[in-house]
Amino acid sequence: MTSERYAIGLARAFGGAILFGIPLLMTMEMWSLGFSMGRGRLLLLMSFTFAVLVGLSYFSGFEKTFSLKEDAMDAFAAFGVGVITSAVLLMVFAVISLDMTWGEIVGRVALQSVPASTGAMLGRKQLGAEQDMEAEAERKREAGYGGELFLMLAGALFLAFNMAPTEEMVLIAFQMTPWHGLALGALSIVLLHAFVYSIGFSGQESRPEGGSFLSTFVHFTLVGYAIALLMSLYVLWTFGRTDGVALAEIANMLVVLGFPASLGAATARLVV
């Protein structure tokens, strides 16, 4: 691998950062969350994102990696791309300007760098013309069940993160009756299963015992939905949406956000 090749990968990373980051870069709530959310939670979110980036680098970075050190280097590079992309675009949108306090600027850029750096990591896969599909497939195979769950987690986190900042998640939860909630939960599970069954895991060695309906359902669909709900809870907590809210109301929000999150979990394999 030469610097030239790496530069192409880096350019694709910027493309991915813009493409995946733009929905949230143009979301109003994200701007205020950048300075109003708890600093401790922001730090935790960024550390968590970084860990996910290292994992994603293993499965599909903007270059082929051979060691944990290289995955970490890839993650740092993706993070840098995410931060630079966010800072430049936010400045062009006049969301940040130099007469703001640095605390506000840093908060806004840091929060936006989460989706942007994930996009940077996925950029190569999405925008790259040539790539080592075989090596990638092999990695997914050898990673086994744990790897599948990690991809689900990354997908659920990314989609939940994309929806959670908006006011609509809470509003939808408020509007729903318990019946709506149950219906949405059931729909999430059915769709998750359909995706898992048709695109994700059929024909893989990791599919347990020849993949009867029940074992696929228990091993992937239910676990996937649980991961989606957990990621939803984590993201809602990160944005302070659960503070002082009654448990029943949180459950409603989880089902609402769990819908996109489970779709993210189901389709992560397509994107990564």
Binding site: M1, L43, M46, E70, A72, M73, F76, F79, I84, V106
Partner: peptide, 24 residues
């Protein structure tokens, strides 16, 4: 490992540490 990779990863590391430091 190409020099550009070192540069990109190094810059990223500095940005990460900087952001973490300022938020912390």
């Amino acid at each position: 490992v190409p020099w550009l990779e070192w540069l990109a990863a190094g810059l990223g590391l500095i940005l990460v540490l900087g952001l973490f430091g300022m938020i912390g």
